[in-house]
Simulated assay, not measured.
Amino acid sequence: MTYVALSAWFLGGAVVIAVIASLVAGRRRASLAGVGITVTVLVVLTAVFDTLMIATGLFHYSPGHLLGIHIGLAPLEDFAYPIAGAIMLPAVWAALRARRRSRIGSTGGEDRA
């Protein structure tokens, strides 16, 4: 399996989970602007630090499994993981908060969030 195929499966799974979590969260879903800013910051950080790690020889990729597109020294496939995290985690967090609020509301307890 190539890195791009693995990245595509990982990113696709994260998007599916994010969509389901957003539906569960309802009105309290994650902010699209916040997710966009987070994706931008993580892409920049990934480009900088992956380039540094690759340049110092901490790791390398087999060229036969890459698309050949790089940002700095970081292959394009390396950006799928931080993007997936930035898309999925806020949606899951919002869904868990919405679920917690609905559970607390139905039991008559106080919401301390």
Rank of each mutant, 00 (worst) to 15 (best):
G36N: 02
A74T: 10
T38M: 15
G13R: 02
R101D: 09
A94Q: 00
A98I: 05
P63I: 02
E77D: 04
I71L: 12
L66F: 02
A95D: 04
A14G: 07
V4W: 13
L73I: 11
T56H: 14
I69N: 00
M53V: 14
L52I: 08
R103S: 14
S106V: 08
R28P: 10
R99P: 08
P90N: 04
W9P: 10
S22D: 08
G64N: 10
L89E: 01
D50W: 08
I20F: 09
T2C: 09
F49I: 04
A8T: 01
T38P: 08
H65I: 12
P82N: 00
L11D: 09
A74L: 10
V39P: 01
T107N: 11
I71Y: 08
A80H: 00
S102Q: 09
A80M: 03
T46G: 07
V44W: 10
I69T: 06
R28H: 13
A47K: 02
L67V: 07
A55P: 01
S102E: 11
H60V: 13
D111G: 12
I37T: 06
I83K: 03
I71P: 03
F79K: 05
V4T: 13
H60L: 13
P90W: 01
R28E: 14
I83T: 03
M1I: 11
H65T: 11
I71W: 09
G109C: 14
V16M: 11
W9D: 13
A91E: 06
L6V: 14
R103L: 15
V39G: 00
G36K: 01
G105Q: 05
L58A: 12
G64H: 09
R27S: 11
R29T: 12
A95K: 06
P75T: 07
A74S: 14
L32M: 09
A55K: 06
F59N: 06
A98L: 04
I69F: 06
L23T: 08
S31D: 03
V43E: 07
L73Y: 12
S102I: 07
G12R: 06
V16P: 07
T56F: 14
